[in-house]
Design a protein around this nucleic acid. Structure first.
Lengths: 335, 335
DNA sequence: ATGAAAGCGCTAACAG
DNA sequence: CTGTTAGCGCTTTCAT
């Protein structure tokens, strides 16, 4: 293994000079720099991560805690994780992958050991037990998601309240009066995941304002569950002409069932989905949708974290504005 | 920050004793151990990761390189990643998440810096440019996937050849004579990802043996692409009664289109999918399928790696046997 | 613009 | 069974 000292000797300079060439923390004459860089290349030198971390008390690692469960839409998680990893790299950080499994212990372990310089938490619950630890941790953190109490925390999330409102607004504008909301699995609501409840909030309040009647039904993914849910919806509200779907694994089943029942989309019923664009575009009817900006969330989370690590940036709640894209699944209410 | 020395002082023992209590590398009297453990708890001590890594030249980190692309089935990737992370934890390792983006450079960086003790690579191509680096690296590694040349490497993968064979066998046994294979996106084949080609191999050779006529068509995901592909299939082989699908985002579109064309599943055509069980169960017709054992692959990869790190275990290719589960989408060929 | 040297916190011989 | 001690490879004052 090549060490800094060996590089220094090879280049005929002191160890500190090599270190400074690497960090750029003080000016080096062009010739020395070149000689050092040459030696580094010739010897194939790579700074030792452990030694660096010990001496600088900086690991250049960001911990990312992803949920263990897979009852929510996985591709979004993955997209966020990948965006976090790639953005982190552009700032010189690597990403440590933690699963929610260990819960608060993982937070203790990572913050306590200095394994990571900072952390990002996904899938935050309204009253998450990891939050107190984060508030008192030495390392900065960013949540992707929005807990009930955000004091002392930085959060990045899609504005799900506005998302809900936007969906209802779109349907109301098209003349729909009875709208059904196909929600996430019941477990998601029971867990009090923020985004599901906030979406509902937005849906309801805008429905009130626009005189739309709303029927909310949580729904497990899959065809069978969707069939049951749909039957109940039309049973309770036969006049339903609009659907808002916030459960990707219910999207295609819903479309299939509607087709099967002879209800044309968008002639007879309109469907608005809250899902990644890819899902909206690949569905059997190109879906009018509000997209979940997974990449942007991951990127923004890292950028806030890096700002904090650099002493810039303070606690803040960043809510990304939703954008609704009109596609083929929504149209005027049948009159 | 609490250090080992402080714990030692608090407990009235030497630093090394504390270290040995932690590592268990030499026997400690019950009373000393208790005193030390007590002090650790009282002071809230956490060993410093960097110092540990430097002194022991062991980071207790496993690097996991995931593909950046998302043209392949993401949930499988995620499931593997999570299985890797949780299994690694049970062995005292954390997981560093690398994206394929950096390519071979990431391998150099990680192995060179001692950031990780070992690595796991997913989405390995037949002639992957990272392989030479792995072979000469000081750290052990495991591939999830199977390259063309496995000498000096350890690989874990589903036996896709056997998987293909199993699918054809099932359909042949039911009397199907014309079988269409709906494959991954063309890009996947162009990239020479091993699993896609191996599946095809298995499909073809067993088709030959059983006298089945096979028609293979790569297919982008989504409804529109599937519609085009399906039309071509029935155009070329009107007598097609069996389908093998190896592209999760084509599964539901295929079922919807068949339904729409008045072809009943499984009465008129049978469908066998290669996909995670969850997809098979949630589809609009419960699918006969060969499941992709993502969790097991992740778990096995870590266990092999840990074995290598502990000086046990040698290079080896582990092919997991496929299992076909008969569900509602396959039945006797229409006579 | 460069060097010298003191640690960073821990592990692992070596010595009893 | 326990203590002493010499590093691990790097960063960062303090000098010059």
């Amino acid at each position: 293994m090549v060490t800094l000292a060996e590089v220094a000797q090879h280049a005929g300079v002191s160890a500190s000079t090599v270190s400074y060439v690497l960090s750029g923390k003080r000016s080096i004459s062009a010739t020395t720099r070149q000689r050092v860089e040459q030696s580094i290349r010739e010897l194939g030198y790579h700074p030792n991560a452990g030694a660096r971390a010990l001496a600088s008390s900086r690991s250049n690692i960001i911990a990312l805690m992803v949920p263990l469960r897979t009852d929510m839409y996985v591709p979004v998680m993955m997209e966020i994780a990948i965006a976090v990893a790639t953005t982190a790299r552009t700032h010189g950080y690597d990403v440590l992958l933690l699963t929610g499994e260990e819960g608060p212990d993982a937070v203790r372990r990572v913050t306590g050991s200095g394994l990571a310089d900072a952390m990002i938490l996904m899938d935050v619950e309204l009253d998450d037990e990891r939050l107190p630890l984060l508030r008192e941790a030495a390392q900065p953190s960013v949540l992707i998601g929005l807990p009930a109490d955000t004091t002392g925390l930085t959060c990045v999330d899609l504005d799900f309240r506005a998302t809900g409102a936007l969906c209802v607004e779109h349907l109301a504008g098209l003349g729909h009066r009875d709208v059904a909301v196909i929600g996430e699995a019941p477990a998601v609501y029971e867990r009090h995941t923020g985004f599901a409840e906030r979406t509902l909030d937005g849906l309801r309040s805008r429905a009130r304002e626009t005189g739309v009647r709303l029927l909310h039904r949580p729904c497990e993914g899959g065809y069978d569950a969707m069939a049951v849910t749909l039957a109940r919806v039309f049973d309770e509200r036969p006049g339903t002409t609009g659907f808002v779907v916030q459960n990707e694994s219910a999207v295609e089943p819903l479309l299939a069932l509607l087709r099967q029942q002879g209800r044309a989309v968008p002639e007879d019923v309109s469907v608005v989905a809250i899902c990644p664009d890819q899902v909206a575009v690949q569905a059997s009817v190109r879906l009018t949708s509000v997209s979940i900006p997974a990449q942007e969330m991951g990127r923004r989370a890292v950028e806030h974290l890096v700002a904090k690590l650099d002493g810039r940036g303070a606690d803040e709640v960043v809510l990304l504005a939703p954008e609704l894209t009109v596609r083929a699944s929504s149209g005027p209410a049948a009159s």
